[in-house]
Write a protein that binds this DNA or RNA. Structure first.
Lengths: 327, 327
DNA sequence: TCAGGAAATGAATACGTATGCAATTAAGGG
DNA sequence: CCCTTAATTGCATACGTATTCATTTCCTGA
């Protein structure tokens, strides 16, 4: 860090005190128009920017929000990240990016969040453990789980209406005349997986249908393998619902590579509506997250002083079915 | 920001001075084993973390690296981001994420970088203007353009060997017996576009071939449109080289939708080798970036005090051709 | 013109940490 | 056991800014 321009230097050039300089850059402070102009001019000339470290230190308030991502496998998350940074920027916050390899938020990452006393943490994808939740609680750092619900942690959650969406998907497939069904899931324990599984199988049961459930991990490769095995083991069904678009692509490709026609022989539905789903090789029917509203609500939960430290709220927001060529 | 645990409180509990606490957390400082143990114990008990704001302030040195991304359209970048965060974490740096909408780095974003006096900036994708470069120079913030070269800015650049890679691709297509060629480009002015275009057309010329050049913008949609137009206008060639994999997918799909067979009728090559390229609908021949080495070199350029402020170095690193089903 | 109140300003201080300096303790050698 | 030297330690200070409080300036109306 090079020698930086300080408020004192600006003050000297503008012929005022450091206090006045500070006031010009603190909204709500009382400064005369004349002083403001002199200060801004001097600041411009010297290229002055308030030092955020000194500012956060004295104000005991951070302007950083921690954004925790697990990976880059699912294109859905980078997209949400963009929304977050854009919205937070408007509110004067910057983003501290934590990109953890593991499913679990590592202690090292927690350290970084704590060292900067971030104003809040958004945890995407990563399954937060109770230990992590305890840490965040202990240091009174507001946190919200994005697209995940982990009961018992007491953390806020903002998620899609997975269960009712899955029910809607089940009804759609039934209406299309399907008689046998498969659900290809995500990582064991992930709430998105659990909720979609529950909604799908329960709705099917309500209509008198069963459902084959295959294990997964949210990856394309596993989707492909599941699709291949379904064919090879002769357990192909009329309809397949994949927990994410990414897995649906894998299933689709396995089917296509083996001559199984979609939607003629099998109807396929995904979840997420990432960009690729509208591409012609897939043209996948899927359920779109209400990303904008999910982001807005997450930020609201983090920054509203009334709610940020209150008991964890769990929100399920309705998205929108996207009917395309696979149904 | 809640009342935090300070070094003073730790000192009191451990029965030592604040200085000693600080020394325990400053590597290279001289502390007796006994004191260290007492302090660490007290720190653990209280959940103490050094305040990064106070630390950066007094040390006049930031532990943040700014990571500037333009968008999320190309999955290649999230992948590189992950590498950066992982490597920087090892070196004790955290990442300040700037996700700018525009091609141009906005003043607002620059402000954030300057307020935190970041130790360095990685600019991905975004085409840095001279004005931006001047700003960074003026405030002596080391910067590196990742996957872009902008001559005249004096900024460091770390890029793939685009030109020679494009030559290699040209030779490959010639060896496959192609006689007519098309290059589908990226955004006008982007160095990746310019260099790949140059290498491809020059190598073709050296072998006595011409090349149809179509404009693009790095997106799938434009790739698709170009592919469709090539067919509809009857200007289909034996070979097509797309500036990125993403555009290649668009071209591929436009061809497939219109019954043009790849690789039988047309050979197609992309650039980037993102994950999707190995999926079965594409199985795209492409050129892989040496991402790991590019990231490592970028970080080296930023943090090596000898080079970080020196004249801009421009590096082109060799990648690797990936031969798959489209050639 | 002047009194009185509001608005604006400056001086001083605090935020939590790293570090130079002086003082103290420990270590080692005879 | 004492002297010399090295290793630790504590005190005090500085980093750059926001804010309290006292003081000064400005404005308004009579």
């Amino acid at each position: 860090m090079e020698k930086q321009v300080t408020a004192h230097e600006v003050a000297k050039l503008a012929g005022v005190s450091q206090s006045s300089v500070s006031r010009v850059f603190t909204k709500g402070a009382s400064v005369s128009e004349k002083t403001r102009k002199q200060v801004l001019e001097a600041a411009e000339q010297l290229g002055y920017r308030p030092n955020e470290y000194a500012r956060s230190l004295i104000m005991r308030k951070s302007s950083l929000i921690g954004l925790v991502m697990k990976g880059v496998s699912n294109p859905y998350y980078p997209h949400a990240v963009k929304k977050f940074t854009a919205e937070l920027k408007k509110l004067g916050y910057s983003v501290l990016l934590i990109d953890t390899d593991d499913v679990e938020l590592q202690m090292h990452d927690i350290d970084a969040l704590l060292s900067y006393h971030v104003a809040g943490v958004v945890i995407m994808d990563a399954t937060a453990s109770f230990q992590t939740a305890e840490m965040l609680k202990r240091f009174r750092i507001p946190a919200v789980l994005f697209n995940r619900v982990v009961p018992g942690t007491g953390l806020h959650s903002v998620s899609c209406e997975n269960e009712s969406a899955a029910r809607e998907i089940a009804r759609l497939l039934i209406a299309r005349g399907c008689k046998s069904f498969t659900y290809v899931g995500g990582r064991e324990g992930a709430s998105t997986h659990i909720e979609r599984l529950k909604g799908f199988t329960e709705e099917l049961r309500d209509h008198g249908f069963g459902c084959q459930v295959l294990p997964g991990d949210f990856t394309y490769a596993t989707g492909y393998r599941n699709g291949a095995e379904m064919i090879e083991s002769g357990r192909l069904t009329d309809a397949v619902f994949a927990v994410t678009d990414l897995m649906a692509y894998g299933i689709f490709d396995a089917f296509r590579d083996r001559g199984v026609l979609i939607p003629e022989q099998v109807k396929l539905v995904g979840f997420d509506d990432i960009e690729m789903s509208s591409w012609s090789p897939y043209n996948l029917s899927t359920y779109a997250h209400p990303v904008d509203r999910m982001v807005a609500l997450s930020i609201e939960l983090l920054l509203d002083s009334e709610r940020s430290h209150a008991a964890g709220e769990v929100h399920y927001l309705p998205g929108e079915m996207k009917l395309r060529g696979t149904t």
